[in-house]
Design a protein around this nucleic acid. Structure first.
Lengths: 108, 108
DNA sequence: ATCATATGCAACCTCTTGGTTGCATAATAG
DNA sequence: CTATTATGCAACCAAGAGGTTGCATATGAT
């Protein structure tokens, strides 16, 4: 991975680096799309706080919303999600190489 | 994944959510262990800033250090690294399920 | 029409982050 | 012994993150 790619991955991880946001993603992944009210129903923080988290996830391209009547429905964003997954795989592969090299080093 | 597991993953992603730290990890993964001076040589920020980033990575369990003479050598932490990788895989799988369900939904 | 619900927006607040500078201290080189 | 090098540590700073409250506005239900 080029330094540019590494730099591009940071905002993605940063968006994932908050428990409330991870729970939101998990909720969307298992429960499907939902309105802000629905998504903040079981949350420990206010509706406005949830809204801000959704905005952060949207900026990272992980979710998107669409207004329907008086409520706005939020859902996972498939495209970028696949991209995120690919990122994770590439980074994991890089780490695996390092792990293998370390192991070889230790065993020699 | 349980809510507790989700919550536990957040600090890990947070540690990865900074370009400087990702570059440090990449450097350690490709170049092997190094002293603070060596690691901050090509960096855009000060040695002290790099040191702080290393501390953050260490708190997340991704790297560890050992003093050798007057310098302290930092390296990737294999155990936790594998754990991090497993996390990523589990989350990716959860997302893949959501993707598949979305696709099915769209195609129906 | 009227009341209730779902959001949007803005102002404010506190704690954390990412960086910096400056100085003290431990080790190695000459 | 003296200079140099590699760190450790603390104080300080500006900007951003995560939350809250309050209030305005758009829709849907009666």
């Amino acid at each position: 991975m080029t330094p540019a790619q590494v730099r591009a991955a940071a905002p993605l991880f940063a968006a994932l680096g908050d428990a409330t946001r991870l729970q939101l993603l998990a909720r969307l992944a298992t429960g499907g799309p939902g309105s802000i009210a629905a998504l903040s129903a079981k949350a420990a923080v206010s509706r406005q706080a949830i809204r801000k988290h959704l905005d952060v996830l949207a900026d990272a391209g992980l979710v998107h919303s669409a207004r329907q009547g008086r409520e706005s429905i939020w859902a996972l964003a498939p495209e970028r999600l696949a991209e995120a997954h690919a990122y994770l795989d590439r980074i994991a592969a890089q780490w695996d190489d390092a792990l293998a090299r370390l192991k070889r080093f230790v065993e020699t």
